[in-house]
């Protein structure tokens, strides 16, 4: 066990616990963007940066993927942290001025007009790679990836063509911290603008509501190794059926 002091609160943790999980446990707020508890943290967005003191040395680290390996003092509100947080938000705001999430964070931490004047892209993507990782680690299809480098880096399907491996589940849409991926369900079809991919929607056998894509259902059958009622009915009707039993 290591001694931890976070914003004055003292506690003890097991080796390897991340700063972010200690913070959550102690109700200390640390802003995050690219972190999601269901995938390995990658430290891509730097939003969660905090100041730590280990063995008498102070440094800035990302809370989401910093494993505690010694007694540690953590400061989430130091001047250095606040300054860096503002700089990160300034950069993000310059890049994605339309994103409600970034605007909200910027306002909260006192960032108004960014000094940087970038060409407007109307793209809310902050290139955190969370969608790519979710597609690989949660869904298990790896239909999307990052491409290019530097300012051109972005998540795409290979060759920016309609994907043959995507199952149209929409996990990327739900996990994206800045709502940068659009998914439109219309006329029995589901379309992902960013992935240039379209799917046929399947209706619930009881109420008819569209609840999944045909490819998604086939994929689930394969993964489960069998057919299952959950692949025929929408979540609502499924609950109704269960309770009637």
């Amino acid at each position: 066990m290591y001694k931890v002091k976070i914003d004055g609160i003292e506690t003890e943790v097991n080796p390897g616990t991340t700063i972010l999980s200690v913070a959550n446990q102690e109700f200390v707020e640390i802003p995050t963007l690219c972190y999601n508890e269901n995938v390995e943290p990658r430290g891509a967005c730097r939003m969660c940066t905090v100041e730590v003191e280990v063995w008498g040395r102070k440094r800035l680290v990302t809370a989401c993927n910093y494993p505690i390996q010694a007694d540690i003092v953590i400061d989430t509100q130091s001047e250095r942290v606040k300054k860096l947080r503002r700089l990160i938000l300034e950069v993000l705001l310059a890049r994605t001025p339309d994103s409600p999430r970034i605007k909200e964070l910027a306002e909260k931490y006192g960032v108004k007009q960014p000094r940087f004047n970038l060409e407007k892209t109307h793209d809310n993507c902050i290139v955190c790679g969370l969608c790519v990782q979710a597609c690989k680690d949660i869904v298990g299809v790896s239909a999307i990836g990052l491409s290019e480098r530097g300012i051109f880096r972005k998540p795409i399907t290979p060759y920016e063509e309609s994907s043959h491996t995507c199952i149209g589940c929409g996990s990327c849409v739900y996990i994206c911290p800045t709502d940068a991926i659009s998914m439109v369900d219309k006329d029995g079809k589901r379309y992902f603008e960013r992935w240039k991919t379209e799917f046929k929607l399947v209706g619930c056998e009881s109420c008819g509501t569209h609840f999944a894509t045909d490819v998604q259902i086939e994929y689930f059958k394969k993964v489960m190794g069998k057919d299952d009622p959950s692949l025929h009915f929408c979540p609502n009707c499924l609950v109704l059926k269960e309770t009637k039993k």
Partner: peptide
């Protein structure tokens, strides 16, 4: 996965 190869190829 192809996206990973594409990533390296364009990087």
């Amino acid at each position: 996965p192809l996206p990973e190869i594409y990533d390296v190829s364009t990087f």
